Simulated scan of single mutants.
Amino acid sequence: MEELAEAAGIPVRTLRFYRERRLLPPPRRDGRIAWYSESHLARLRTIAALLERGHTLGGIAELIAAWEKGRTLGGVAELLGVGDTLAAPWSDETPVVLTPQELAEYFGDDISPENLTAALEIGYISVDGENALHTSRRLLDVSAALVREGVPLAAVLAAGREVRCHVDAVAELFTQVVKTHVLGPLDDLPPEHVQRVSDTMQRLRPLAKDIVDAEMSLAMERRVRAEIEAWLLRQQSATRPGGGPAHSETRERPAPPGPPA
Rank of each mutant, 00 (worst) to 15 (best):
G9Q: 01
V12Q: 14
V12R: 15
R13D: 12
T14R: 08
L15K: 01
R19N: 08
R19W: 08
E20Q: 08
R28C: 13
R29K: 10
R29H: 09
A34C: 08
S37V: 12
E38H: 13
E38K: 08
S39H: 07
H40I: 04
H40L: 03
L44N: 00
A49I: 03
L51Y: 07
E52G: 11
E52C: 09
E52Q: 11
R53V: 05
G54S: 01
T56A: 05
G58C: 02
G58K: 06
W67L: 11
E68Q: 10
R71H: 09
T72F: 04
G75T: 10
L79Y: 05
V82M: 10
D84M: 05
D92M: 06
T94A: 11
L98T: 02
T99N: 08
Q101H: 13
A104V: 14
F107W: 06
G108K: 08
G108N: 06
A119R: 00
E121T: 14
G123W: 00
S126G: 11
D128W: 13
D128L: 14
G129V: 10
G129T: 08
A132W: 14
L133T: 06
S136P: 05
D141N: 04
S143N: 06
A144G: 01
L146F: 04
R148T: 05
E149W: 05
G150C: 00
L153C: 01
L153M: 05
A154T: 02
A154P: 00
A155I: 04
V156A: 00
E162V: 13
V163M: 05
R164L: 04
D168Y: 11
D168P: 07
V170A: 14
Q176V: 12
Q176H: 14
K179Y: 13
K179D: 15
T180D: 15
L183G: 02
G184F: 03
L186V: 01
D188T: 10
P190I: 02
E192Q: 04
V194T: 06
R196P: 06
S198I: 01
D199G: 01
D199C: 01
M201K: 04
L204W: 07
A208H: 09
D210W: 07
A214Q: 15
E221F: 14
V224I: 12
V224G: 03
R225P: 02
E227L: 15
E229G: 06
Q236A: 12
A238W: 08
T239S: 15
T239P: 14
G242T: 07
A246F: 12
T250M: 09
T250R: 10
R253N: 07
G258T: 09
G258I: 07
P260S: 15
P260W: 15
